[in-house]
Amino acid sequence: MKVQPLLNHLLIHDSRKYKTQSNQGFTLLEMLGVVLIIGILTAIAAPSWNAFTNGQRLKTVNNRVFQAIKTAQAEAKRKKDDVTITFDSVVDPPTVTYNGNVEKLNVSGEIKSGTIKLSTGAGDTTVTKDTEIIFDYQGNIKTDNPVQVL
């Protein structure tokens, strides 16, 4: 019967005698290693992330131009009248105007000045100006030289 109190006494005595120190936290060397690894991964990922965001911005501008053209074409069909869509590339950022609606192509200020250039004609003889497209009452591009069917 004396064995149990003796064991309890030894266990309590031993736990007080050999207090373990808590090794909480990180050493400076471990922290430097983690920071170095994060820096290397960031250096690898940053250029591709920049290219990705620029590509997304370009796609957004292209979609806005396409939507403006489709809206002007639909408006010409709806009104049964000519609708002119004008691209103003003199201002920065460029704007698209049709029926008094002016739409900036700047995507909420995310595009830096001088990075968007619009051109509609690109040498096409059917376009009267290099900055506008005219849709007729059927939604077709209006030309100066109508095509004659023989």
Rank of each mutant, 00 (worst) to 15 (best):
G33Q: 10
L7G: 01
T143M: 05
K70V: 10
N99Q: 12
L150F: 06
Q4C: 10
K77G: 05
N23G: 11
I38C: 13
M1C: 03
D92P: 00
K79P: 09
K142A: 12
V90N: 09
T126G: 07
S108M: 03
K129V: 04
H13N: 08
G25T: 09
L7I: 03
L10D: 09
L32T: 01
K2Q: 14
I85D: 01
D81C: 00
D124E: 04
T115M: 13
I69N: 03
Q4V: 07
V3N: 14
E103S: 07
Q73R: 06
Q21A: 10
G139Q: 07
L6N: 06
V102F: 10
N8K: 09
S15C: 13
A46R: 05
T115S: 14
G123K: 05
I85T: 02
T84C: 02
V35M: 13
V96Q: 08
D124C: 15
P5Y: 01
A76G: 01
T95C: 04
I37H: 05
N145R: 01
D92R: 00
S119W: 13
R78Q: 06
D130T: 01
I141A: 10
I40W: 11
N140I: 08
A45F: 14
I37Y: 06
K79C: 13
V35K: 00
I141C: 13
K112C: 09
G139P: 08
N54C: 06
D130V: 05
E30I: 00
K59R: 12
L10Y: 05
G25S: 09
P5C: 02
P93S: 03
